[in-house]
Nucleic acid binder design. Structure first.
Lengths: 121, 121
DNA sequence: CCGAATCCTACATGATACTG
DNA sequence: CAGTATCATGTAGGATTCGG
Protein backbone atom coordinates (compact mmCIF):
# COMPACT_ATOMS: atom_id res chain seq x y z
CA UNK A 1 0.00 0.00 0.00
CA UNK A 2 2.74 2.40 0.88
CA UNK A 3 4.33 2.31 -2.53
CA UNK A 4 1.50 3.94 -4.41
CA UNK A 5 2.23 7.36 -3.04
CA UNK A 6 5.99 7.01 -3.20
CA UNK A 7 6.39 8.88 -6.40
CA UNK A 8 5.04 12.06 -4.81
CA UNK A 9 7.21 12.22 -1.79
CA UNK A 10 10.51 13.04 -3.45
CA UNK A 11 9.21 16.34 -4.65
CA UNK A 12 8.09 17.82 -1.40
CA UNK A 13 8.48 21.39 -2.55
CA UNK A 14 7.99 23.34 -5.68
CA UNK A 15 7.80 26.97 -6.66
CA UNK A 16 11.47 27.86 -7.04
CA UNK A 17 11.01 31.58 -6.44
CA UNK A 18 9.21 32.88 -9.50
CA UNK A 19 10.22 36.47 -9.73
CA UNK A 20 11.90 38.09 -6.78
CA UNK A 21 13.77 36.25 -4.08
CA UNK A 22 13.89 33.04 -2.08
CA UNK A 23 10.23 32.18 -1.60
CA UNK A 24 9.70 28.60 -0.38
CA UNK A 25 6.14 28.75 -1.75
CA UNK A 26 4.90 25.26 -1.21
CA UNK A 27 2.50 23.41 -3.50
CA UNK A 28 1.82 19.80 -2.67
CA UNK A 29 2.33 17.46 -5.55
CA UNK A 30 0.57 14.60 -3.79
CA UNK A 31 -3.07 14.54 -4.90
CA UNK A 32 -4.28 13.08 -1.62
CA UNK A 33 -2.58 15.72 0.49
CA UNK A 34 -3.71 18.30 -1.97
CA UNK A 35 -7.37 17.34 -1.68
CA UNK A 36 -7.23 16.95 2.07
CA UNK A 37 -5.69 20.37 2.45
CA UNK A 38 -8.25 21.87 0.16
CA UNK A 39 -11.19 20.23 1.91
CA UNK A 40 -9.69 20.97 5.30
CA UNK A 41 -9.88 24.69 4.82
CA UNK A 42 -12.40 26.37 6.99
CA UNK A 43 -16.03 26.24 5.88
CA UNK A 44 -15.32 23.92 2.95
CA UNK A 45 -17.03 20.89 4.39
CA UNK A 46 -19.97 22.87 5.68
CA UNK A 47 -20.55 24.64 2.38
CA UNK A 48 -20.46 21.39 0.43
CA UNK A 49 -22.81 19.90 2.97
CA UNK A 50 -25.26 22.71 2.41
CA UNK A 51 -25.08 22.24 -1.33
CA UNK A 52 -25.69 18.53 -1.02
CA UNK A 53 -29.21 19.41 -0.01
CA UNK A 54 -30.11 21.85 -2.76
CA UNK A 55 -28.70 24.70 -4.79
CA UNK A 56 -27.91 27.99 -3.11
CA UNK A 57 -27.31 31.61 -3.96
CA UNK A 58 -24.38 33.55 -2.57
CA UNK A 59 -26.22 35.60 0.02
CA UNK A 60 -28.29 32.62 0.91
CA UNK A 61 -25.14 30.74 1.81
CA UNK A 62 -23.93 33.75 3.75
CA UNK A 63 -27.08 33.58 5.84
CA UNK A 64 -26.89 29.89 6.59
CA UNK A 65 -23.22 30.22 7.58
CA UNK A 66 -23.52 32.93 10.21
CA UNK A 67 -19.87 33.72 10.73
CA UNK A 68 -18.33 33.44 7.29
CA UNK A 69 -17.00 36.48 5.48
CA UNK A 70 -17.84 37.17 1.83
CA UNK A 71 -14.17 37.00 0.94
CA UNK A 72 -13.78 33.48 2.26
CA UNK A 73 -17.05 32.32 0.76
CA UNK A 74 -15.92 33.60 -2.61
CA UNK A 75 -12.59 31.83 -2.27
CA UNK A 76 -14.25 28.54 -1.38
CA UNK A 77 -16.81 28.68 -4.16
CA UNK A 78 -14.18 29.54 -6.74
CA UNK A 79 -12.10 26.63 -5.50
CA UNK A 80 -15.04 24.27 -5.81
CA UNK A 81 -15.80 25.40 -9.34
CA UNK A 82 -12.14 25.18 -10.30
CA UNK A 83 -11.99 21.60 -9.05
CA UNK A 84 -15.24 20.60 -10.65
CA UNK A 85 -17.22 20.04 -7.48
CA UNK A 86 -19.68 22.83 -8.08
CA UNK A 87 -21.33 24.50 -11.04
CA UNK A 88 -21.96 28.20 -11.06
CA UNK A 89 -24.72 29.73 -13.14
CA UNK A 90 -25.70 33.34 -13.25
CA UNK A 91 -28.60 35.24 -14.77
CA UNK A 92 -28.17 38.56 -16.54
CA UNK A 93 -31.37 39.99 -15.14
CA UNK A 94 -31.40 42.49 -12.34
CA UNK A 95 -30.93 41.95 -9.51
CA UNK A 96 -28.54 39.27 -10.64
CA UNK A 97 -29.15 35.77 -9.44
CA UNK A 98 -26.26 33.34 -9.17
CA UNK A 99 -26.72 29.77 -8.10
CA UNK A 100 -24.24 27.16 -7.02
CA UNK A 101 -25.00 23.51 -7.57
CA UNK A 102 -23.10 20.34 -6.75
CA UNK A 103 -21.77 18.34 -9.66
CA UNK A 104 -21.57 14.54 -9.67
CA UNK A 105 -17.98 14.80 -8.51
CA UNK A 106 -19.18 17.06 -5.75
CA UNK A 107 -21.67 14.43 -4.67
CA UNK A 108 -18.96 11.82 -4.59
CA UNK A 109 -16.99 14.05 -2.26
CA UNK A 110 -19.91 14.74 0.04
CA UNK A 111 -20.50 11.01 0.24
CA UNK A 112 -16.94 10.57 1.41
CA UNK A 113 -17.46 13.38 3.91
CA UNK A 114 -20.52 11.55 5.08
CA UNK A 115 -18.52 8.39 5.71
CA UNK A 116 -15.91 10.40 7.55
CA UNK A 117 -18.67 11.92 9.64
CA UNK A 118 -20.02 8.53 10.60
CA UNK A 119 -16.54 7.36 11.49
CA UNK A 120 -15.57 10.45 13.43
CA UNK A 121 -18.40 10.73 15.91
CA UNK B 1 -28.18 14.81 4.49
CA UNK B 2 -27.60 18.47 5.16
CA UNK B 3 -29.17 18.35 8.57
CA UNK B 4 -26.66 16.05 10.20
CA UNK B 5 -24.00 18.71 10.39
CA UNK B 6 -26.38 21.55 11.18
CA UNK B 7 -25.72 21.55 14.86
CA UNK B 8 -22.09 22.45 14.29
CA UNK B 9 -22.52 25.40 12.04
CA UNK B 10 -24.01 27.80 14.55
CA UNK B 11 -20.87 27.79 16.58
CA UNK B 12 -18.41 28.71 13.92
CA UNK B 13 -15.98 30.21 16.36
CA UNK B 14 -14.80 29.49 19.83
CA UNK B 15 -11.93 30.51 22.01
CA UNK B 16 -13.11 33.84 23.39
CA UNK B 17 -9.62 35.13 24.20
CA UNK B 18 -8.33 33.01 27.05
CA UNK B 19 -5.96 35.34 28.80
CA UNK B 20 -5.12 38.61 27.16
CA UNK B 21 -7.08 40.42 24.47
CA UNK B 22 -9.36 39.97 21.48
CA UNK B 23 -7.96 36.87 19.83
CA UNK B 24 -10.35 35.30 17.32
CA UNK B 25 -8.59 32.00 17.92
CA UNK B 26 -10.58 29.54 15.91
CA UNK B 27 -11.17 25.93 16.81
CA UNK B 28 -13.58 24.06 14.61
CA UNK B 29 -16.37 22.37 16.47
CA UNK B 30 -17.34 20.34 13.44
CA UNK B 31 -15.66 16.94 13.66
CA UNK B 32 -15.52 16.53 9.90
CA UNK B 33 -13.81 19.85 9.33
CA UNK B 34 -11.61 19.13 12.28
CA UNK B 35 -10.39 15.81 10.89
CA UNK B 36 -10.00 17.15 7.39
CA UNK B 37 -7.91 20.05 8.63
CA UNK B 38 -5.82 17.75 10.72
CA UNK B 39 -5.23 15.26 7.92
CA UNK B 40 -4.72 18.06 5.43
CA UNK B 41 -1.66 19.37 7.22
CA UNK B 42 1.50 18.88 5.31
CA UNK B 43 3.11 15.43 5.47
CA UNK B 44 0.23 13.91 7.43
CA UNK B 45 -1.06 11.71 4.65
CA UNK B 46 2.40 10.65 3.58
CA UNK B 47 3.49 9.71 7.08
CA UNK B 48 0.36 7.65 7.67
CA UNK B 49 0.91 6.03 4.32
CA UNK B 50 4.40 5.04 5.32
CA UNK B 51 3.15 3.59 8.58
CA UNK B 52 0.50 1.58 6.81
CA UNK B 53 3.29 -0.55 5.47
CA UNK B 54 5.21 -1.25 8.66
CA UNK B 55 6.40 0.41 11.85
CA UNK B 56 9.04 3.11 11.68
CA UNK B 57 11.54 4.87 13.89
CA UNK B 58 11.86 8.63 13.99
CA UNK B 59 15.04 8.98 11.96
CA UNK B 60 13.86 6.31 9.63
CA UNK B 61 10.83 8.41 8.82
CA UNK B 62 13.07 11.45 8.44
CA UNK B 63 15.03 9.59 5.80
CA UNK B 64 12.04 8.43 3.80
CA UNK B 65 10.58 11.95 3.84
CA UNK B 66 13.53 13.89 2.45
CA UNK B 67 12.34 17.42 3.04
CA UNK B 68 10.54 17.24 6.36
CA UNK B 69 11.94 19.00 9.41
CA UNK B 70 12.19 17.23 12.79
CA UNK B 71 9.89 19.80 14.31
CA UNK B 72 7.09 19.07 11.89
CA UNK B 73 7.58 15.32 12.11
CA UNK B 74 7.33 15.53 15.89
CA UNK B 75 4.18 17.62 15.64
CA UNK B 76 2.54 15.15 13.28
CA UNK B 77 3.46 12.09 15.29
CA UNK B 78 2.23 13.66 18.51
CA UNK B 79 -1.01 14.56 16.78
CA UNK B 80 -1.45 11.01 15.56
CA UNK B 81 -0.84 9.56 19.00
CA UNK B 82 -3.18 12.10 20.55
CA UNK B 83 -5.93 11.14 18.16
CA UNK B 84 -5.35 7.45 18.54
CA UNK B 85 -4.10 6.77 15.04
CA UNK B 86 -0.61 5.75 16.07
CA UNK B 87 1.03 4.02 19.00
CA UNK B 88 4.41 5.12 20.24
CA UNK B 89 6.72 2.74 22.08
CA UNK B 90 10.18 3.49 23.27
CA UNK B 91 13.01 1.38 24.71
CA UNK B 92 15.12 2.56 27.63
CA UNK B 93 18.30 1.10 26.20
CA UNK B 94 20.95 3.24 24.57
CA UNK B 95 20.83 4.38 21.90
CA UNK B 96 17.13 4.80 22.45
CA UNK B 97 14.82 3.18 19.97
CA UNK B 98 11.33 4.56 19.47
CA UNK B 99 8.84 3.02 17.10
CA UNK B 100 5.60 4.31 15.70
CA UNK B 101 2.87 1.89 14.71
CA UNK B 102 -0.57 2.34 13.22
CA UNK B 103 -3.54 1.49 15.42
CA UNK B 104 -6.76 -0.02 14.08
CA UNK B 105 -8.22 3.47 13.91
CA UNK B 106 -5.15 4.50 11.95
CA UNK B 107 -5.78 1.70 9.50
CA UNK B 108 -9.35 2.82 9.05
CA UNK B 109 -8.07 6.26 8.19
CA UNK B 110 -5.48 5.03 5.73
CA UNK B 111 -8.20 3.00 4.07
CA UNK B 112 -10.20 6.16 3.60
CA UNK B 113 -7.11 7.88 2.24
CA UNK B 114 -6.72 4.99 -0.14
CA UNK B 115 -10.25 5.50 -1.43
CA UNK B 116 -9.59 9.19 -1.83
CA UNK B 117 -6.44 8.35 -3.73
CA UNK B 118 -8.31 6.11 -6.13
CA UNK B 119 -10.93 8.79 -6.63
CA UNK B 120 -8.50 11.64 -7.06
CA UNK B 121 -6.27 10.34 -9.79
C1' DC C 1 19.21 7.90 17.99
C1' DC C 2 15.24 10.99 19.29
C1' DG C 3 13.83 14.71 19.61
C1' DA C 4 13.34 20.08 21.97
C1' DA C 5 14.05 25.12 21.43
C1' DT C 6 14.37 29.25 18.41
C1' DC C 7 13.52 32.15 14.92
C1' DC C 8 11.38 33.44 10.73
C1' DT C 9 8.35 33.44 6.54
C1' DA C 10 4.03 32.41 4.14
C1' DC C 11 -0.49 31.57 4.21
C1' DA C 12 -5.30 31.20 5.94
C1' DT C 13 -8.89 33.72 7.89
C1' DG C 14 -11.49 37.70 9.44
C1' DA C 15 -13.49 42.45 9.75
C1' DT C 16 -15.07 46.00 7.21
C1' DA C 17 -16.21 49.08 3.58
C1' DC C 18 -17.39 49.64 -1.07
C1' DT C 19 -19.07 48.59 -6.14
C1' DG C 20 -21.59 46.75 -10.73
C1' DC D 1 -27.88 40.54 -5.12
C1' DA D 2 -23.20 39.14 -5.65
C1' DG D 3 -19.35 39.95 -5.02
C1' DT D 4 -14.24 43.02 -4.67
C1' DA D 5 -10.64 45.65 -2.10
C1' DT D 6 -7.99 46.50 1.87
C1' DC D 7 -6.03 45.76 6.17
C1' DA D 8 -4.85 43.13 10.19
C1' DT D 9 -3.62 38.87 12.79
C1' DG D 10 -2.95 34.13 13.99
C1' DT D 11 -1.36 29.76 12.74
C1' DA D 12 1.36 26.38 9.84
C1' DG D 13 5.64 25.17 8.05
C1' DG D 14 10.55 25.32 7.58
C1' DA D 15 15.78 26.05 8.77
C1' DT D 16 18.89 25.53 12.10
C1' DT D 17 21.05 24.48 16.39
C1' DC D 18 21.35 22.10 20.67
C1' DG D 19 20.51 18.44 24.46
C1' DG D 20 19.52 13.67 26.84
Amino acid sequence: MATELSKWEEQGLRGEAVGTKQAPRHVSQCPVEDWLTFLGHRWSALILWRLSDREFGFSELMETLPKISPKVLTERLEGFVERGLVTRSSTSTFPRRTTYTLTDAGREITQMLSRLYEWAR
